[in-house]
Computed example of a mutant assay.
Amino acid sequence: MQKKSTHNLHMQIANDTMYYIYEHIDTDINIDDLALKFNISKHHFHKIFKEQMGINIYETIKSNRLQKASNLLLTNKFSTITQIANMCGYSSQTSFIRAFKHRFNQTPKQWRNGGYKEYSTQILRNSELSFYEKPNFDDIDVKIVKTKARPAYYIRHKGYKVKEAKKIWQKLQAWKYTNNINDYEEIGIYHDNPAITPHDECFYVAAVIPKDDSGLENTNLPHFYMPESLYATFDITGKIGDVLRFIQWAYHEWLPSSGFETTTNPSYAIFSKNQFLEEDEQFKATYYLPIRYT
């Protein structure tokens, strides 16, 4: 059994690697350089990552590239397939098309022309978090905001399951009490779009942003900075699972007709009422959708 200090170090390495992948998804990510950054051998680096994340690092990089591309193909209608491939780290359109077809059983062009609809519908139908009923969100108010960079302390978990999500948020709740944090925001971060990614493959990130983190002492939680960026925001309410249907609508319907395009930044929800900590499993949140002006 690993010592706690070793486990915490390995967890930090794996989480820092995931953050690096998200931040540099448009580049040729060099595993040798990453291992050198952490001052460990390449073999040990692979072993640590696989133990912590349950998937090897090469598959993680490929999966993230394709998930980001699947979003951009829907929302960035003025970008060519080659441009989208480049935005997600592919230098060759041929290799991108081959990898995309292997993952989604259709070409990027077929996906863009409507193939995503049935694929996404099946993802939500197969989820324990959602019964597939499609609400009408067309009358929801939209605001455009620019956020500031802020530190977020988080727990990452693979898979969207209610029981596990509740445990994660309870651990974060205990962390807040231990550190006497009274002024904070609770955030669910969707690096993996749950409307188009099988839920057993999604990494769910639950995070807390303290208003003041200068006095934190009792923490071994990893943290990163939420990026300064441009977002469309939506105030939403509902029960567990409804967030997923909203994300589907935001990416598949609102964005393509909005005049904006999206970026490779993740979307996220700030909860003023957290469904995983409430007995009635109801939530109240503001959803942040990354956009760019075109």
Rank of each mutant, 00 (worst) to 15 (best):
S130P: 07
F131G: 00
F131S: 08
Y132D: 03
Y132R: 09
Y132M: 12
E133F: 13
E133C: 09
E133V: 14
K134Q: 11
P135H: 01
P135S: 00
P135L: 00
N136F: 00
N136P: 12
N136E: 05
F137V: 08
F137L: 04
F137N: 08
D139I: 07
I140K: 09
I140E: 03
V142D: 05
V142F: 03
K143I: 05
I144M: 11
I144F: 01
I144H: 04
V145T: 10
V145A: 00
V145W: 02
V145C: 02
K146L: 03
K148F: 08
K148L: 15
A149V: 10
A149G: 14
R150G: 00
P151N: 08
A152T: 10
A152N: 11
Y153I: 06
Y154M: 07
Y154I: 08
I155Q: 05
I155K: 10
R156K: 14
H157K: 15
K158R: 15
K158M: 11
G159T: 06
Y160W: 12
K161L: 09
V162K: 15
K163D: 08
E164S: 14
E164I: 11
A165P: 06
A165K: 03
K166V: 14
K166F: 02
K167T: 09
K167R: 14
K167L: 11
I168F: 02
I168K: 12
W169Y: 11
W169Q: 07
Q170R: 12
Q170M: 09
Q170F: 13
Q170V: 07
K171P: 02
L172V: 04
Q173C: 05
A174L: 12
W175Q: 02
W175T: 06
W175S: 05
K176E: 03
K176F: 00
Y177E: 15
T178D: 11
T178K: 15
T178P: 01
N179V: 06
N179W: 02
N179M: 09
N179P: 04
N180A: 11
N180G: 04
N180T: 14
N182I: 10
N182Y: 12
N182Q: 13
N182C: 04
D183F: 03
Y184S: 07
Y184R: 09
E186V: 11
I187V: 15
G188D: 03
G188W: 08
G188F: 04
I189F: 03
Y190Q: 09
D192C: 15
N193C: 13
N193M: 08
N193H: 10
N193D: 12
N193P: 07
P194I: 07
P194F: 03
P194R: 01
A195W: 15
A195Q: 05
I196T: 13
I196N: 12
T197I: 13
T197E: 07
T197N: 09
T197P: 07
T197Y: 02
T197H: 04
T197L: 02
P198C: 05
H199P: 01
D200R: 09
E201W: 10
C202F: 01
C202A: 13
C202P: 13
F203W: 15
F203V: 11
Y204L: 14
Y204C: 14
Y204I: 13
Y204K: 10
V205F: 10
V205W: 11
A207W: 13
V208C: 12
P210A: 04
P210H: 04
D212I: 01
D212R: 06
